Computed example of a mutant assay.
Amino acid sequence: MREELIRQVYESIYDIYLHGSEQVAHSLKEDEELKHFSREQTQLIKVIDSYPETTMKEIAEILGVHKTGVSNKVKKLVEGGYLEYRKGPDHKSKYVAVTEKGHEVVERIEAINVTRWRTLFAGEFTEEELEDLYGKLFRISKRFKKEEDEK
């Protein structure tokens, strides 16, 4: 494969991620309850919701940040009633879990995301084109997961 083509694909995906995250963050600011959430907090609560019984160290690794940065954000979300600390099965480790209030916020974030992306795609893609795009993105995601599992 041509290196320039790979670079263009990578840069396009990265650009979509950056601009998409920014636009969704603006949409979240229009929601009364979510307007006080930072972009990092919304990402954090979604990661914790997606990976239950995850330790602070694992969360930091998933997000690619330092554990101290995660700890401060988690603490604020715990204080707000969106997350809670739980003891691991060994009673030594501690992990973070999403509360019922937190699950409601995750659902609202998802609804805002879907609405924003639906608006973005409307008139630009047919349903078949979106299915094709999803299939290709799924293959990329599957490849990343396979490489992670092999580590």
Rank of each mutant, 00 (worst) to 15 (best):
S71Y: 14
E3R: 10
E150S: 15
E110Y: 14
Y51W: 11
T42L: 03
R118Y: 10
E147K: 11
E79F: 03
R39M: 12
K76E: 05
H66V: 06
H26Y: 14
I6R: 14
R116D: 04
S38T: 15
E11H: 05
T119D: 09
P89C: 09
E40Q: 09
I140W: 08
E148Y: 10
E100H: 08
V9S: 04
V114K: 11
E124P: 03
H26N: 12
H36F: 08
H91W: 15
L18D: 07
L133F: 04
I45V: 01
H66R: 08
S27V: 01
T68L: 07
L133W: 08
G81I: 03
K94M: 14
W117A: 11
E107V: 06
K94Q: 13
R86H: 13
E58L: 07
L5M: 13
L77I: 01
H26M: 07
E79Y: 06
E79D: 14
F125N: 05
Y82E: 07
K67W: 10
L63F: 00
V78G: 01
E129Q: 15
E127Q: 06
D90L: 03
K136H: 12
S141Y: 14
K142Y: 07
Q43M: 14
E110F: 14
V24M: 01
G81L: 01
E150M: 11
G135K: 05
E127V: 04
F37V: 02
E150V: 04
Q41G: 01
E131V: 05
E58T: 07
S93T: 05
E32T: 09
L63R: 04
L133P: 00
N113W: 08
E58G: 09
R2M: 09
G20M: 03
E40L: 07
G135P: 01
T68H: 15
E84G: 04
I6S: 08
V105M: 02
E107W: 07
E110V: 07
R118M: 14
